[in-house]
């Protein structure tokens, strides 16, 4: 039998809050697909995706406690690619933005393209976008650095404490690839020690969670850094660390710029 149709892959974002953030383009990719894979963080949201298409396959079944996460994400990409190779029009729907702290969509798209298939990503509203809105934080004011919490712990990073620091996946901070989906006071205490290299113990930090369901309120819990080990932090929480010092002026560069003067009128 000859293949009459070449498969395609579109990974789209669902946004964070059910009903509020889905773009018309993402909805159209879902509706026009042959098969839809759902990588969402909430059963109610998954039920919503099921109302948009008759063949929605959950990616939740690939997770297991103690299973290396890299393997989980590879299997998710494999599942999507298997359908693409069969000539199907595949849509991967991921909560938030499909390319923000999300491995399977990037991997699946790269692999599909390497095999000669058309594969695209469409952006969605990320929890990062909600964070800027809810916390009244503009990343352009003094800058903002985003890191995975565990990566921040395992590697020596240079933190600019005059900018904001946003730590993702803090709910499993300190996982050494054992496939845990939680953290605990001991691991959070080590994260606190790493932050204490740059920030004082009485520095205020924010545990943030944007609403997933439209009747929920955002979690914006202001705590002291020293209280972080005792905080209840889950998979959907993000830790936001405000700057602790002012921007330091650079007199030498200012002087060089000033010496250039105003452009002379021509």
């Amino acid at each position: 039998m000859t293949q009459t149709r070449q498969g395609t892959l579109a990974c789209v974002g669902l946004g964070i809050t059910l009903g509020s953030h889905l773009t018309p383009l993402a909805r159209s990719h879902i509706a026009s697909a042959d098969v839809v894979f759902a990588g969402v963080s909430d059963g109610v949201v998954e039920a919503w995706v099921r109302r948009m298409h008759h063949d929605v396959r959950s990616l939740q079944g690939f997770y297991a406690e103690g299973k290396p996460r890299g393997e989980t994400y590879r299997e998710m990409a494999d599942a999507m690619l298997a359908e693409v190779r069969l000539g199907q029009k595949v849509c991967g729907v991921f909560y938030g933005h499909p390319g923000v702290f999300a491995q399977a969509p990037h991997d699946a798209i790269a692999r599909a393209r390497a095999e000669g298939f058309t594969a695209i990503m469409e952006p969605g509203v990320s929890s990062e976008d909600c964070l800027y809105a809810d916390l009244g934080l503009d990343p352009g004011r003094v800058g903002c650095m985003h890191l995975g919490a565990t990566q921040f712990m395992l590697f020596r990073r240079t933190i600019d404490t005059s900018a904001w620091l946003v730590l993702w996946q803090v709910g499993l901070a300190g996982d050494l690839g054992e496939g845990r989906f939680d953290t605990d006071p001991e691991r959070l205490a080590i994260l606190t020690d790493v932050l204490r290299r740059d920030y004082p113990a009485d520095h205020g930090v924010i545990v943030y969670q944007a609403p997933t369901l439209p009747f929920e309120a955002a979690r914006m819990e202001h705590i002291l850094l020293s209280a972080l080990p005792g905080a209840a932090i889950g998979m959907a929480d993000t830790l936001v660390v405000p700057p602790c010092r002012r921007l330091a002026p650079d007199p030498a560069i200012r002087a060089r710029l000033a010496a250039l003067g105003m452009p002379s009128p021509t």
Binding site: G39, V40, S41, D42, G43, V44, E46, A47, Q60, Y63, P68, R69, G70, Y73, F94, Y95, F101, A102, Q103, A104, G148, A149, T150, Q151, L154, F155, W168, Q169, G171, L172, D175, L176, G177, F181, M235, A236
Partner: peptide
């Protein structure tokens, strides 16, 4: 009531 059970939200291995 609608979808009991654990839903995993983690999609990235940040062991670098």
């Amino acid at each position: 009531q609608i979808a009991p059970g654990v839903f995993y939200a983690i999609q990235m291995d940040d062991t670098p």
